[in-house]
């Protein structure tokens, strides 16, 4: 298609929007709101993934050593631990240090320790695994080292927390996909209105030899404008809402910080606008295709 034709047809697409502006406004508002919900989902997903990543990074393995090891033997175990490729860092924690830490955690209730005559805690290493490590596998490998009694990473809690995060992510993705289909349908129906308004013109276009792409193009532009502008407005709305929510959360639940707007914002909002535009184009394509086939 020549550039001149493309521009003319794009202009016709805009004119089509203007022609159906009254019915279109209601539909457009719905599109903006639905895209806002979609934007919130996107942001929520990004935060979930951030949370999961944070959790994974924070997982440390505790390697408890067998009783009665000499300092040399303990140091040797440490060396062996550090040679494993999945280990990023391993720090020795002596049994007395461990008891001190425990006492600090129980500050104010030291009487608990009066019941204990002897320090029951073993010497241990705190192991920081490399990102993406299979903790269960690493823990088994660590337990193979001579002098290691047990290696643990709070399996059950970590497993449950990650499962919860994954399920929430999957549910959000499913809801977002459902929403995307719904938005595409709304756009299909808006375009159907303009297709209907121009049905005579389309009939004549086909009779005088217009190609399908020539007939499609103004409607594709119209769908694109709807989706793009809707998503742009929705992005602005989500931006304001997120700013407000971040402030509220940093005040009331400071230990659960939301991602900063700069970290992923551009990506999330571009994704939202891109998705909006794509849904617009797909919706209008399906609408016109259905009409041309009929």
């Amino acid at each position: 298609m020549k550039i001149r034709t493309v521009l003319r047809l794009a202009w016709q697409g805009l004119a089509g929007l203007w022609r159906t502006r009254f019915l279109g406004t209601a539909a457009f508002t719905t599109i903006v709101l639905a895209l806002m919900v979609m934007g919130i989902f996107l942001v929520f997903l990004a935060n979930l993934s951030h949370l999961a990543q944070g959790l994974e990074e924070r997982v440390q393995l505790r390697v408890f050593l067998a009783d009665g090891l000499s300092p040399e033997a303990m140091a040797k175990v440490g060396e062996q631990i550090r040679t494993l490729p999945e280990v990023e860092r391993a720090t020795f924690v002596s049994r007395s240090e461990a008891l001190e830490r425990l006492k600090r955690q129980f500050a104010g209730r030291e009487e608990v320790f009066e019941l204990v005559e002897e320090n029951p805690l073993p010497d241990s290493y705190v192991v920081q695994p490399a990102p993406g490590t299979d903790w269960a596998k690493l823990s088994r490998a660590l337990e193979q080292i001579e002098g290691v009694e047990r290696a643990t990473y709070g399996e059950e809690i970590v497993r449950r927390a990650l499962l919860f995060l994954r399920m929430t992510t999957a549910a959000t993705l499913a809801a977002a996909a459902f929403l995307a289909v719904a938005i595409t349908f709304i756009i299909m129906n808006v375009i159907r209105l303009t297709v209907y308004a121009r049905r005579r013109e389309i009939e004549i276009m086909r009779l005088v030899g217009a190609s399908d792409s020539y007939i499609h193009f103004p409607f594709l532009c119209e769908g694109f404008f709807l989706g793009f502008c809707g998503a742009l407005l929705a992005a602005l709305g989500v931006d304001r809402a997120y700013l407000w929510l971040s402030e509220q959360m940093s005040r009331s639940i400071p230990f659960l910080p939301l991602l900063g707007r700069d970290a992923f914002w551009l990506q999330a909002m571009s994704a939202l606008i891109g998705l909006g535009a794509l849904m617009g184009v797909v919706g209008s394509y399906l609408s016109v295709k259905r009409f041309l086939r009929a």
């Binding site: 298609m1 020549k2 034709t5 003319r8 005579r200 013109e201 009939e203 004549i204 276009m205 009779l207 005088v208 030899g209 217009a210 190609s211 020539y214």
Partner: peptide, 20 residues
């Protein structure tokens, strides 16, 4: 089968426009 909102000239030109 003419387009009622277009002039005679535009109706005829329409067939040429769609053929670019």
């Amino acid at each position: 089968k003419l387009l009622p909102d277009r002039t005679v000239w535009e109706n005829v030109a329409f067939a040429l426009e769609v053929a670019e």
